[in-house]
Each structure stands twice: as C-alpha cells, then as structure tokens.
Computed example of a mutant assay.
Amino acid sequence: MDATRPADTWHLSTRTPTEWGFPSGQIPANSPKGSADVPMPLPDYGVATGMRGDVRAGRPVAVTLSGTTQEWLTDSVKADAATLSPSA
C-alpha cells in the first residue's frame, strides 16, 4: 500500500510505502459458494511528529507497531514476527 500527501502542504514524508505478507490456507470444502473470510492481520504504525509532520533530524525517533483483525471476525489473528526497514 502506498500513501501519498500533497507536497505543497507536506514538505517531508510525502510518500509512505507499506508492505506486509501473511500465509493463508485452503478454503474448506463445505464453504458456501467456495469462499471464506480470510483472517488477515491489519498492520499499523505511528511516528510522533510536529504539527507539520516533521521530526527533528539527528535524534532517535520512536516508531510504534500494532495490528488488528477485521471487526466482523470472531477470532483474532496474532503476528509472530515483525520487521521494520526504514529508508531515507
């Protein structure tokens, strides 16, 4: 997923690419119409910024990682690993 913001308003961080993967299994034979809900993890992350979305250069920045599952599913999905690969 790529998120973009207009450069005339946001002079930094105008594009954020996000990638995630997950394993899935086979659809049970007794599923209606041969389909099933896939309990897919929905990742989220956050960075504390100023009002313009800026962070001060040369200092450590905390990044929070979290995740949820689709609201309508009865079972939750838990991630067993996460990797953060920041780039300049």
Rank of each mutant, 00 (worst) to 15 (best):
M1P: 13
D2C: 14
A3Q: 04
T4L: 06
R5I: 06
R5S: 08
R5Y: 09
R5E: 06
P6W: 04
A7K: 12
A7T: 10
A7D: 02
A7F: 08
D8P: 12
D8N: 05
D8F: 15
T9E: 06
T9F: 12
W10R: 08
H11M: 13
H11F: 11
L12Y: 07
S13N: 14
S13D: 07
R15W: 01
P17T: 00
P17F: 00
T18I: 07
E19T: 14
W20E: 00
W20H: 00
G21S: 12
G21H: 06
P23D: 08
G25N: 07
G25A: 06
Q26P: 01
Q26K: 12
A29C: 05
N30W: 04
N30I: 03
N30A: 02
N30C: 03
S31P: 03
P32A: 11
P32T: 07
G34L: 03
G34R: 10
S35M: 11
A36R: 11
A36N: 08
V38N: 02
V38T: 04
V38P: 00
V38W: 07
M40K: 06
P41N: 02
P43S: 08
D44M: 08
Y45S: 04
Y45F: 07
Y45D: 02
G46K: 05
G46P: 03
G46E: 07
V47H: 08
A48P: 01
T49I: 03
T49C: 06
T49Q: 04
G50Y: 05
M51Q: 12
M51E: 13
R52Q: 09
R52I: 10
D54L: 00
D54G: 00
D54M: 01
R56D: 05
A57P: 04
R59Y: 12
R59K: 14
P60M: 10
P60R: 14
V61Q: 06
V61S: 02
A62L: 06
A62W: 12
V63S: 00
V63D: 00
L65S: 05
L65T: 07
S66K: 05
S66L: 12
G67S: 14
T68R: 15
T69M: 04
Q70V: 14
Q70A: 15
Q70L: 12
E71D: 09
E71I: 14
W72S: 11
W72M: 13
L73V: 13
T74I: 13
D75A: 14
S76C: 15
S76N: 15
S76L: 13
S76I: 15
V77H: 03
V77C: 10
K78W: 11
A79C: 04
A79D: 02
A79Q: 03
D80S: 06
D80P: 03
A81L: 11
A82Q: 02
S85T: 12
P86S: 15
S87N: 15
A88Y: 14
